[in-house]
Design a binder for these strands. Structure first.
Lengths: 133, 133
DNA sequence: CTGTTATTTGTTATGTCATAACATAACATC
DNA sequence: GATGTTATGTTATGACATAACAAATAACAG
């Protein structure tokens, strides 16, 4: 277990907003939702998001320029996570794959590349949207 | 081999610019370089980039919101390519890993996810920048 | 407590990335 | 040479992100 994150007011508001929505939101989506709570400027949102992402409580989806709450409850997960983003319903599934991680680490090792961060994102259609009950 | 791409003037200018530079460029970087050639508006660049990316002659780097020429000569490569982006010198290495592809396809299969596109990007420091000359 | 330091917050302005909407031109095919 | 398609030009606007600075709040040693 890791130490308690102890969120500030703004961080708590932003995380709550992401969790309530469940699907990816842009910083400006979040801003719009939190106007009533006194959040007035993009920077307030971006600053909170920076901390949440650093703490592993939220993720940035590079291919969407958007953010989601981490799916794992109380997740402070570090390391490689892959995302499958449904372009129809907006849902995001997270999965960790040790083999992929190993392959990326292996390539980096061979190539002398020192990895700071990795992005693995799939865009497509989720099971629910492919075969609507 | 695939059919001849037959680039238009704007596409040729944009691709030439990317190839000459070698490292990732934003659409506006390209625009700046091509002002002298009559390219005046962002859309002219974005439209050319769309075609180049679709043809596999250039790649979009999602984590950078930028573009690079495809590294493989005459490359019309399709499918999964991973990128290692050096945050120090800006260089980009492309590599294809069949195992990673297999794992992603395998996950998608199991989960009923239909993948349209995949992004795999590493950010870090390349060998040359880690151990300067 | 009190002073000092570090962090968080608020606010304005600006920078950067990307596309909508519409008009025009080039080109192929019949 | 009429028609459908693709590429282009142009203006305006939308969407994502940060710089710079001031003020408030938290953390903590003395």
């Amino acid at each position: 277990m890791t130490e308690p994150p102890k969120l500030t007011r703004n961080q708590d508001l932003v995380l709550g907003c992401l969790q309530k929505t469940g699907t990816p939101m842009s910083a400006y989506d979040i801003l719009g939702q939190l106007k009533a709570d006194g959040i007035k400027a993009p920077l307030q949102v971006y600053r909170a998001l920076d901390k949440l992402v650093a703490a592993g409580l939220a993720h940035r989806l590079e291919s969407l320029n958007a953010f989601v709450a981490c799916a794992g409850d109380e997740c402070h997960r570090r390391g490689l996570i892959a995302f499958a983003i449904c372009e129809t319903c907006g849902s995001v599934e997270e999965f960790a794959d040790a083999v992929i991680r190993q392959r990326l680490d292996g390539w980096a090792e061979e190539s002398g590349f020192h990895t700071h961060s990795a992005t693995v994102e799939l865009r497509g259609t989720c099971a629910g949207c492919t075969r609507p009950h």
